Amino acid sequence: MSETTETWFDQPLAFTISDRHVRGRLVRLCPVLNTIMTAHSYPPAAEKLLAEALVLTVLLGSTLKDAGSQLTLQAQTGGGPVELLVCDYKDGELRGYLKFDAERLAEVGSDPTLFALFGEGFLAITFDQAATGERYQGIVPLEGTSIGDAAEHYFEQSEQIPSLIKLSSRHDAEAGCVAGGLLLQHLPEGEVGRDRLHVRHDHPEWEHARTIAETLKGDELTDPATSLETLAWRLFHEEEVRIEPGAAISRGCRCSTGYFAGVLAKFPEAERRDMADEAGVIRIDCAFCSRIFPVPLDEISAAS
């Protein structure tokens, strides 16, 4: 592993192990994570779920190569206390929101299963490709012990890419919420495209790399004293590992009066008048940033 400036928080680290036909991502979120969290008062179980979902969103979204492409992660309930989880990543900007029934969530404890949170829910992962305008979406049941398990099922069923996902989060008295994650995927020899599951038995190096990666502990992923490069070296110190730090991550909310005016301009004028209050103002509630944006009707007319 070559010398490089070390990566600590709010920046993914991509790595490849050519001899094992493996690629991966590591990330640890803290400052940007707490900025997102402070927009709402999340109880511990909700904070843990959203934190790990945001880490997963970065791990997947940072694989997009073209500027303007977007990864959206959405989980919906099948009768559980969590009604909606949505996160997205675009050009290094991350946002997320969790809607839940507080009373019912309190009943499931501090470390609930996915089923306790969502019931018979589902996970939808959507890739919007800016260069081609194409959209790829996979929907899988919310099964397993964590949202990372559900994402592994997505890659197995929808993408047929052997994958390992590890997620962890904790609440630190000084730093606040800290969360980290690992995405490891197998690639066929000589290709940079998608692998198919039937080749797994022909590539024992994938099982070797996966077995090593599974030894990574949650405390290591969230340890602020350990750089991501150090984690990669600890895991694969016997391999030739190529690393590449990704773009810094920021809290991204596209909310503004001008943005909403442009959206509302697409509605018929009569519908806009019905939305407005007596002062001629439409008030938009942004769930992501927990703010109300007043949009006067005359500004909407100017944007149309």
Rank of each mutant, 00 (worst) to 15 (best):
A75N: 02
A75F: 04
Q76D: 13
Q76Y: 07
Q76T: 14
Q76E: 15
T77M: 05
G78C: 02
G78S: 04
G78H: 02
G78Q: 02
G78M: 05
G79I: 01
G79L: 02
G79M: 01
G79A: 01
G79T: 01
G80N: 05
G80L: 07
G80E: 07
P81I: 07
P81A: 07
V82Y: 08
V82L: 10
E83P: 10
E83W: 12
E83F: 13
E83A: 15
L84E: 13
L84N: 13
L84Y: 11
L84T: 13
L84R: 12
L84I: 12
L84M: 14
L85Y: 05
L85W: 05
V86L: 14
V86R: 14
C87R: 02
D88M: 06
D88N: 12
D88V: 03
Y89H: 04
K90M: 10
K90G: 04
D91P: 04
D91N: 05
D91M: 01
G92N: 02
G92A: 01
G92W: 01
E93P: 07
E93G: 15
E93R: 14
L94I: 00
R95I: 02
R95M: 05
G96V: 03
G96Y: 00
Y97P: 08
L98C: 06
K99V: 15
K99H: 15
K99D: 15
F100V: 08
F100Q: 11
F100T: 08
F100R: 04
D101A: 12
D101W: 12
D101Y: 09
E103G: 11
E103T: 12
E103N: 14
R104Q: 14
R104C: 09
R104H: 13
R104P: 10
L105A: 09
A106V: 08
A106D: 11
A106I: 11
A106C: 09
A106H: 07
A106P: 09
E107R: 13
E107N: 10
E107F: 04
E107V: 11
E107G: 10
E107K: 12
V108S: 04
V108T: 12
V108P: 07
V108D: 06
G109M: 02
G109I: 00
S110F: 08
S110G: 09
S110H: 06
S110I: 12
D111F: 01
D111L: 08
P112S: 07
P112L: 05
T113S: 04
L114D: 00
L114A: 07
L114I: 08
F115P: 11
F115H: 13
F115L: 14
F115I: 12
A116W: 05
A116D: 10
A116K: 11
A116R: 08
A116Y: 06
L117Q: 06
F118D: 10
F118Q: 09
G119H: 03
E120W: 09
G121I: 08
G121T: 06
F122S: 15
F122I: 15
F122R: 14
F122K: 15
L123M: 02
L123Q: 09
L123Y: 02
A124Y: 01
A124R: 11
A124M: 07
I125S: 00
I125H: 00
I125V: 03
I125G: 00
T126S: 06
T126R: 01
F127R: 10
F127M: 09
F127V: 10
D128A: 12
D128F: 09
Q129Y: 08
Q129T: 11
Q129P: 03
Q129N: 11
Q129V: 10
